[in-house]
């Protein structure tokens, strides 16, 4: 008979009451620890044994006081539930694109638990929230042992489920520049079933500029690469040449479809994803510049 095997739990479970404690626990447990917010993406991975953390650090005791405005930015604490974002009059007024997108996240149970910080940290390339945060030109506030820093969304999403957050850091806030009265937006997606992961999604923000006729456009494609993809100036060039015009929209949509190399999988072929990209880019752009 051998010595009794230690009857250990699959993971240690610790709660954090504040960000400082979460950071301390993170340092203590190191690489084996996972932070859990709403858990609506992480727990399926644990249930399927795709993730086997040594410790779970539960952020749920950290109370979120909901979105607020701060010097032209809409500040959304990381632990804000999707439900609170969806119900927030501030979000509806100042960021209707986020209000629309968050209503398409999961189902009512997922929205009741899932958080904006969790979605952003999980960095699913088909997720609605990363796509919108990037299109908005938002920034992500992260906190670590050496203090806080703010990362522009442009530099935040690196590849599949990977962000610019360091191992010892935690996402604490999402900050989005408030949209003005003259600004437009568009968001559209195709899913196999309502509430499912998006096959392809497109988010567009069109910010009017005092000095120029053409709004500043940020067009983001989701579901066609390893991360939400911000289209470059070269792809948006027809707008500079033709102005906000149906012809420019068609050309940008065509450019966008040509610029990507999506993967084929059981849900959609690469060609279908390219075609969806063209159609959804056209629709979202048209809505954003008022030609929809």
């Amino acid at each position: 008979m051998s010595a009794a095997a230690p009857n250990s739990s699959a993971f240690e479970y610790q709660t954090a009451d504040c960000w400082e404690e979460a950071i301390k626990l993170r340092a203590l447990w190191g690489e084996g620890a996972k932070l859990i917010a709403g858990g609506q993406s992480l727990v399926p991975m644990i249930n399927l044994r795709l993730a086997m953390p040594a410790a779970l650090i539960d952020l749920n005791p950290i109370v979120s006081s909901g979105p607020w405005l701060d010097q032209g930015e809409l500040v959304i604490p990381a632990m804000t539930r999707h439900r609170a974002v969806l119900d927030s009059p501030l979000v509806a007024t100042h960021f209707p694109m986020l209000a629309k997108a968050v209503g398409l996240v999961g189902n009512v149970r997922v929205r009741n638990r899932g958080t904006i910080g969790g979605s952003v940290s999980h960095a699913d390339p088909t997720g609605e929230i990363p796509c919108v945060v990037l299109a908005a030109g938002g920034r992500i506030v992260v906190q670590g042992p050496s203090g806080m820093r703010s990362v522009p969304a442009d530099d935040f999403f690196l590849t599949y489920l990977t962000t610019a957050t360091d191992l010892d850091e935690v996402v604490t806030e999402i900050r989005l520049p408030v949209a003005g009265d003259q600004d437009g937006w568009g968001f559209d997606e195709v899913t196999r079933r309502f509430s499912d992961f998006a096959t392809v999604e497109v988010a567009v923000s069109a910010r009017s500029r005092a000095s120029e006729e053409i709004p500043e456009l940020r067009v983001v494609l989701g579901g066609v690469a390893d991360r939400p993809l911000l289209l470059g100036e070269d792809i948006l060039e027809p707008f500079r040449r033709l102005g906000a015009d149906p012809q420019a929209i068609d050309e940008v949509a065509q450019n966008a479809a040509n610029s990507i190399s999506p993967e084929s999988d059981v849900h959609a072929s690469a060609d279908y994803r390219r075609r969806l990209t063209q159609v959804l880019t056209r629709r979202s752009l048209a809505q954003a510049v008022g030609l929809g």
């Binding site: 479970y13 858990g39 609506q40 399926p44 249930n47 189902n107 997922v110 009741n112």
Partner: peptide, 25 residues
């Protein structure tokens, strides 16, 4: 077990959640 079918729905403080995606602790 993934939060997409709704059969494990329970109310937590009167809001529906997935019982399969919350740990008992």
């Amino acid at each position: 077990g993934e939060g997409v079918c709704g059969t494990c729905t329970v109310l937590a403080d009167n809001e529906p959640i997935n019982a399969c995606l919350t740990f008992a602790v």
